[in-house]
Amino acid sequence: MQQKTAPMMQTVGLLAPSLVFLVLFTYWPMLQSVWQSLRIESFGSDEVTFGLGNFQRLWTDDSFQQAALNNLVYALGTIVPGIVIALALAVGLQEATRLNAALRAIVYFPVLIPLVAAAALFSFVFLPGIGLLDWHLAKLGMAQINWLGNPKVALWSLIGLTVWKNAGYYMLFFLAGLQAIPNDLYEATRIEGAGVIGRFRRVTLPLLGPTFAFVFVIALINAVTQIDHVVVLTKGGPSDSTNLLLFYIYQQAHENLDYGKAAAATVVTLALLLALSLTSLRSLERGVHYES
């Protein structure tokens, strides 16, 4: 009996410090959000009822649907190119030469700039007519583009900025993943007569499976939680075309003082994020392990 409790106590003891903070600052606020999302209050009355009214109002809100759709486009638009570019960079720069080390540092540089500062920088890059982007495009004879002020373009401008900012970060994970692939596998395929593309497809890609799953989860969380550039550059405009879920929540809570709707949107976003993360993490644990 005693032999059993001792390691148990040890585990609890070791976990306790971080558990306290997790409970206080993560799980407790999550529970509070759920609680708040079910509370229905109305202006001019102290009466509180409980139910799904906030969720009903959320579903019928065009702005929420727009924000959810935008966030989907934003997630796909940042994750797919982000991962492709990061992988290409990692494969290209995997040999540990001095030049590669310098290039890796250059590619990694945008990661070091806080997103809010990068957004402030890009407010000048994106200036129509005068900004860096239009200035160079004009030399190629292209017309001015209102990067942030055209509702059809604005979200893609933010996507471009995000890919620029994050590709270097994801590259790091792929570099680490590539180091873990044993060299004899490559030698074996070479003896079998596989070319460069064959080796990439048959060895590199499958063995990077866990890295893909991991980077996907990180990128997904980024796509939902990192919205500094929305705040700095567009405030969700023009006409809600760059509104993302987290900014929508912020607007409901702080601009409209509609805490019920904000909490409902938080719960929906969290549920989506949890479901997607769990699925990809499970696939990370299953199936994608290869013995060399």
Partner: peptide, 10 residues
Amino acid sequence: MPEGVTEGKA
């Protein structure tokens, strides 16, 4: 006047 939105700073 340019099409689309031009922020105050721009």
